[in-house]
C-alpha cells in the first residue's frame, strides 16, 4: 500500500532522515517507535508532502507521491492524524468533523451518515458536537482529531503519537478504539509512538527509528521479546 524507499530529508542544511526505507502492506498495523527527535514526524510529514525528500521515492497505492502537494495526497485518501491534535479551535466539534470530509463530495445524507458513524465510535463527540473544539480536554481533542481524519473514508491512516499527553486510562481506551476502527474499516494503519509498549502490543510489525536512521524492523511480537529492545524501549 505504501512504499518509502531510500529517502533523505533535510531541514535547510540539517539532515533529519538518512536513507530511510519503510513499507506498509494491504491490511496490517505497523508501528514506528523511537525517542523524541528521532525523525518520526518528519517521516510522516514527508509522506504527506509537507517536506520533500532530497533523494528516494514514495509510492502510495501504486502512485508516486514524492513530489505531490499535501492537499492532493489527502485527495488520494491517505490520511494523517497529526501530532498534537491540531483541531480547529474556533469551530464546533461538528464543523471540525465536516472539515475532515473536505476532500470528498458527500451529499448531505452521506455526510450525516458519516457523522453518525463517528458519533458511534466516539459517543462523547456527539454530546459535545456544538461545543468549540478549542474548549475541550486533550483526550476529547485527540478523539476529535481521529474522527475528523476518518470522516473522509481513508484508504490508509497514519496516527502520530495519539497517546501524547493523555492519562493512562484514556491511552488504553484510545488504542482499543484504534484497533476497533482498523477492524471495521479494514485499512492499513501506521502508528507512530514514543509509548513503545502500547504501539508494539497492537501492531503486526514495528520499525525502530533512531537519529534519522532506520535501526531495524520486524514482527512486533518477536521484537518485544528481544532483550535489546526490552532494555532500550520497554524499560527493562
Amino acid at each position: 500500500m505504501l512504499k518509502v524507499e531510500n529517502i533523505d530529508v533535510y531541514y535547510g542544511k540539517v539532515q533529519a532522515l538518512y536513507d530511510v526505507c519503510f513499507e506498509v502492506g494491504e491490511n496490517e498495523i505497523v508501528s514506528i517507535i523511537g525517542s523524541n527527535g528521532a525523525g518520526k514526524s518528519t517521516l510522516m510529514k514527508t509522506i504527506m508532502g509537507v517536506n520533500k525528500p532530497a533523494k528516494g521515492t514514495i509510492e502510495f497505492n501504486g502512485e508516486q507521491i514524492g513530489s505531490v502537494k499535501t492537499n492532493l495526497i489527502v485527495g488520494k485518501r491517505l490520511v494523517y492524524i497529526p501530532e498534537g491534535r491540531e483541531v480547529f479551535p474556533k469551530m464546533s466539534v461538528k464543523d471540525n468533523l465536516v472539515m475532515g470530509a473536505y476532500s470528498r463530495k458527500y451529499s448531505s445524507a452521506e455526510m450525516n451518515r458519516k457523522l453518525e458513524e463517528m458519533f458511534e465510535i466516539y459517543p462523547r463527540l456527539k454530546e459535545r458536537q456544538s461545543q468549540l473544539a478549542g474548549s475541550m480536554s486533550g483526550g476529547e481533542q485527540q478523539m476529535l482529531a481521529i474522527a475528523r481524519g476518518l470522516m473522509s473514508e481513508p484508504k490508509m491512516v497514519m496516527y502520530d503519537e495519539p497517546s501524547l499527553g493523555l492519562s493512562p486510562l484514556i491511552v488504553d481506551e484510545m488504542f482499543e478504539t484504534i484497533v476497533k476502527v482498523k477492524q471495521t474499516m479494514k485499512i492499513p494503519v501506521v502508528i507512530v509512538e514514543q509509548n513503545a509498549f502500547m504501539a508494539m502490543s497492537i501492531s503486526d510489525r514495528t520499525y525502530i527509528l533512531e537519529n534519522g536512521h532506520m535501526k531495524g524492523s520486524g514482527a512486533s511480537k518477536e521484537l518485544m521479546d528481544s532483550p535489546e529492545i526490552k532494555k532500550a524501549y520497554l524499560g527493562g
Binding site: 509537507v50 489527502v74 485527495g75 494523517y80 497529526p82 491540531e86 480547529f88 474556533k90 469551530m91 473536505y102
Partner: peptide
C-alpha cells in the same frame, strides 16, 4: 477560516 485557525491542519484536510 480553517487556514486562519490552523494552517497545518488545513493542509491535512485536503485544503
Amino acid at each position: 477560516r480553517c487556514v486562519s485557525q490552523n494552517k497545518k491542519a488545513a493542509a491535512f484536510m485536503g485544503i
